[in-house]
């Protein structure tokens, strides 16, 4: 597992004027999961067209928003915008940004996906920086230039938790500018996690993830971000993070997790019950007036139930895995032409 590696934050300097050479052999889908936050759709899309001019022409722009998104996109098209294919996707407000991201990724066809916020369009420098920064990485995520400036207890707690659980820190998980291989995005988002945690999932699964500084005003948070200063949001985010950690760590071996909880409970129950039974056999006490006996048996029952849930989990993993491949091959090198084409 590539968890011990230090976070890679690339320098903001030396961004080449690489132009179209950055994207010679791969197609790009642009995903805007929060298109509802965009006030002027036409201006937003034109800004991207201008920013990407000479760098890359995307295969499509997928715009996910609430009811009325199709009409908004139709108006832009009617206004003569024919730079690339526009794919409107409507979703309910309740579905939220995480579901919107998943929907958009399911529709994407490009080799690469550029995820951007709907609130403010990115500049040419940002787009170029992300494309250049991708290099050998599987995913690059933007970091607001002033991410280090803002502090506070809640942010420190989050960073501490991420460091402890995932072995590396991310300076700005809330930045919406991300570029990566489509397969990495879809595999990471398939767990149904908060879209903020996509880099964590990708990193956990061994993909190369890198952070890349981008201008602060573009990475600035939208008005209704999860980072809104309310304790409830932070509490939920932390719980989600904890759940993500448990799921990732024990997804393949649920019994390891459930046994770690159930075995000590079961052991404690056996100790208590055993002590009382021995005491009763030695005529030291009666069982009828010992509530501890009920507690001991309760512990045994609970322990068995928790371990049994783990065993059911193991059977689920076994039945679902025995017919599916648990690996993905990048390429096969062999002089034998039959092999190379497998």
């Amino acid at each position: 597992m590539a968890l011990s590696k230090a976070a890679t934050v690339q320098s903001m300097t030396s961004v080449p004027d690489a132009g179209e050479t950055l994207m010679t052999d791969r197609t790009l889908s642009v995903v805007v999961a929060t298109f509802g936050e965009c006030e002027d759709a036409k201006a937003f899309l034109e800004t991207y067209r201008d920013a990407m001019s000479g760098i890359v022409t995307p295969l499509e722009i997928i715009l996910v928003g609430e009811e009325g998104t199709r009409d908004r996109v139709a108006k832009v098209r009617d206004g003569g915008f024919d730079w690339c294919e526009l794919v409107p996707v409507e979703t309910s407000f309740a579905a939220g940004e995480d579901e919107a991201t998943k929907l958009a990724l399911a529709r994407a066809r490009g080799d690469l996906v550029l995820a951007v916020p709907g609130r403010k369009a990115g500049s040419a420098a940002t787009i170029r920086r992300l494309l250049e920064g991708l290099g050998e990485n599987d995913l690059v995520v933007g970091v607001s230039e002033d991410a280090q400036k803002s502090g506070g207890l809640r942010k420190n707690v989050l960073h501490w938790a991420i460091r402890k659980m995932f072995g590396r820190d991310y300076q700005d998980l809330f930045c919406r500018f991300r570029l990566g291989k489509r397969s990495v995005f879809t595999e990471s988002a398939a767990l149904g996690v908060r879209q903020h945690f996509i880099p964590l999932v990708a990193d956990w699964r061994g993909y190369n993830v890198s952070e890349l500084p981008i201008p602060a005003e573009e990475a600035r948070l939208p008005a209704l971000s999860v980072w809104h200063p309310r304790l409830r949001w932070h509490y939920r985010a932390l719980i989600d993070l904890l759940m993500l950690f448990v799921v990732l760590k024990f997804l393949d071996r649920p019994l390891r997790f459930f046994s770690a909880i159930g075995a000590p409970i079961f052991g404690l129950g056996c100790l208590i019950t055993g002590y009382l039974v021995i005491a009763r056999l030695l005529q030291l006490t009666t069982l009828a007036d010992r509530p501890l006996l009920t507690f001991g048996v309760l512990m045994i029952v609970l322990g068995v139930q928790v371990i049994a849930i783990g065993l059911v989990g193991e059977i689920i993993v076994y039945t679902s895995n025995r017919r599916s491949k648990s690996y993905e091959i990048d390429r096969i090198v062999s002089l034998n032409p039959d092999r190379s084409s497998e």
Partner: peptide, 16 residues
């Protein structure tokens, strides 16, 4: 692998 056709090298997309 370029010298010996008996060697087949499989490269995974990531660490599995």
């Amino acid at each position: 692998a370029q010298k010996d056709e008996r060697l087949v090298v499989v490269k995974f997309l990531r660490n599995f």
